[in-house]
Simulated assay, not measured.
Amino acid sequence: MTTADSRPGGPRSPEQRKREALARLARDNDVWAATADATGEPCLVPLAFWWDGEAVWLSTRDTNPTGRNLCASGRVRLSFGHTRDVVLVHGTARMLTREELPAGVGDAFAAKDGWDPREDHPSYVFFRVAPQVLQAWGTVVEMAGRTLMRDGEWLV
Results as ranks from 00 to 15, higher is better:
Leu25Tyr: 04
Glu153Cys: 11
Ala34Ile: 02
Gly114Trp: 00
Val31Cys: 12
Thr60Trp: 02
Val141Asn: 12
Thr63Gly: 00
Tyr124Val: 00
Arg24Glu: 07
Leu47Asn: 03
Thr83Tyr: 09
Pro8Glu: 14
Leu25His: 07
Trp51Glu: 05
Gln16Thr: 15
Thr2Asp: 14
Ser79Ile: 07
Gly53Leu: 07
Thr139Ala: 14
His121Met: 07
Ala72Arg: 11
Trp50His: 15
Ala48Tyr: 06
Gln135Asp: 10
Asn29Trp: 03
Leu58His: 05
Leu44Glu: 04
Phe126Glu: 02
Met149Tyr: 06
Arg118Met: 11
Arg24Gln: 13
Asp52Val: 04
Leu134Arg: 01
Tyr124Arg: 13
Ala26His: 10
Pro122Thr: 01
Thr35His: 10
Arg146Ile: 01
Gly81Gln: 09
Phe49Leu: 03
Val76Pro: 04
Leu148Met: 07
Lys112Asp: 06
Ala110His: 01
Gly104Ala: 13
Trp115Tyr: 08
Leu44Asp: 05
Lys112Ala: 10
Cys71Ser: 12
Glu20Gly: 08
Arg75Thr: 07
Met149Asn: 08
Phe127Ala: 07
Gly138Gln: 06
Thr97Asn: 04
Val86Ile: 13
Gly53Ala: 06
Pro117Ala: 09
Ala93Val: 04
Met143Trp: 13
Ala111Cys: 04
Leu25Asn: 08
Ala55Leu: 00
Val87Asn: 09
Ala36Phe: 10
